[in-house]
Nucleic acid binder design. Sequence first.
DNA 1: TTGTATGCGTTATCAT
DNA 2: ATGATAACGCATACAA
Lengths: 336, 336
Amino acid sequence: MVTITDIANACGVSRATVSKALNGAPDVSRETADRIRETAASLGYLPNATARALKLGRSYNIGVLFSDETGGGISHEYFSRILESVKAESERLGYDITFISKDLGRMSMDYYEHAKYRSCDGVVIASADFQDPAIVRLAASEIPTVTLDYSFDNCSSILSDNVRGMEALVRFVHGKGHRRIAFIHGEITSVTQKRLASFRRTCAELGVPVPAEYIRPAVYHDPRSSGLATRALLALPDRPTCILFPDDLSFLGGMSELEKHGLAIPKDMSVAGYDGIPLSQVLRPRLTTYRQGAERMGAEAARLLIEQIEQPDTWIPQQITVEGELLEGNTVADIG
Amino acid sequence: MVTITDIANACGVSRATVSKALNGAPDVSRETADRIRETAASLGYLPNATARALKLGRSYNIGVLFSDETGGGISHEYFSRILESVKAESERLGYDITFISKDLGRMSMDYYEHAKYRSCDGVVIASADFQDPAIVRLAASEIPTVTLDYSFDNCSSILSDNVRGMEALVRFVHGKGHRRIAFIHGEITSVTQKRLASFRRTCAELGVPVPAEYIRPAVYHDPRSSGLATRALLALPDRPTCILFPDDLSFLGGMSELEKHGLAIPKDMSVAGYDGIPLSQVLRPRLTTYRQGAERMGAEAARLLIEQIEQPDTWIPQQITVEGELLEGNTVADIG
DNA sequence: TTGTATGCGTTATCAT
DNA sequence: ATGATAACGCATACAA
């Protein structure tokens, strides 16, 4: 491994001078600086991030915490899109990313300890459960954090626009003439609560009644449970004309249930999903859904976090809401 | 931040003793060791991975390199499953993972330099293009590497069983009585070549003729191109009775094309995918496909890499082939 | 403009 | 059994 010492020897200057030259300090002559940079390049010198981190107390490394009951958080397309964009934006700004988890090898530590252990300059947090004491501890710690889809006091957050997303779907469906709209929701999280509230409020605003039996619980990303909920809805004496699903994947459970009943989409039943995953747009008919702005969310999260890291004094916690877009598709019949 | 110095002061011993006690060295009395560990715990001491890495020349950090033309490698479900399992297994063995990329901030570096810069103990490589000089350089370097779905000389690799996977599909389809089998393949990579070769060889073994026009090129994960290829196949005077798609997602493009022609699956046309993503199993009819053992691949990759890192002397490059499983589904008609 | 000295937190060597 | 010391690679305050 070639170090600044090697360059210093090769150039006949001190290590301090090399360090300065390489970091573009003003107090080193143009000529020596150039000479140093040239030899550094020819020697194939690479700064050692570890040593630099130890010295500076800054690792240029940010933690990413994706926690999900199931553990398979990353494989959810919504999360992986966010991860991908957090990664891209962080790298653009000169930061690497490391996953933060509980328990590393034989040492058992919580998220905060893990982040500390790796000297993360900050952490982006996405979690299915923001009540988890380990998450709360990290968010409340001195480590800069940005949360996704949840707001802690005094810490920045990026929010997907669940309120407006649900509102857009309901208004679209209503515009097509539907007045009996059912909503199958995922397990109760703050995201679900926002969607539920927005669903109810928008319906109220539009004068659409919402019978209690039109609201059915299911589990996110679990087609089976949404299939069961669909079956329950179809069994109602006063069937809805349109069903909103917790997400696009869950819709598939409803889809096969509808097929079993010999109901065609959208002729006999209108449907809409949520997320706008690629699958939804290759299905025929194309699924009506709301595509979340995951890419922008990830990028904004990284940007905000790094801003806070680099300008801690002028920093103020910020809530950024990222809008998605309604994908109209062809699964909502015009029954106006 | 509480360091070993703090513990040393609190216990009235030297830093050296603290370090030894914490690392379970034999040459420190039971009593002092216990006392030190207790104070360490009560003070909330956490080792500093950075300092340790600098001193030891071992970071307990492994790089993950996922490169894909499109850049969005992680969001492909196959990759994210691998990533998830690499992460889980690495963490189980006490290693964190960091993404390796080209170009970090303003410094431009290649993969090898990036891995060096972060002092990665090793790197897991997944790439769409193993010809990339930057990939070749990393694989040929002194940094331990494990490649996925490709074999470099003198470096371990984990191979999904493309040969057996394709063979299993062809034999299954053949068993159902099909003798006119078409294959739409993805862009030419080593993986594609293996599948193509296996397709041809298995057909030859079974005495199934493979007319040149039954082999059509398309693009992985791109339903549109597979849709076009499907159209071309349907236009043939001597239509195939079964079409094998490059992957499950691509099948969707073929699906809508078949629908346009009023062809029902599997009555009028049999089909099979590849990958076994969750989607394939919620579709109706359930897609016949081959599910790759991504979870095992990731875990084996991490295991092999860490083994090489920790026992460099007894290490021998190893090729591990991970079998997947045929998911029979209902999209291949029995025309025997 | 350049160099000297020191320390970041840790571990390993060698005395004691 | 314990401690003093040096070293990992780098950056900075300060001296020259």
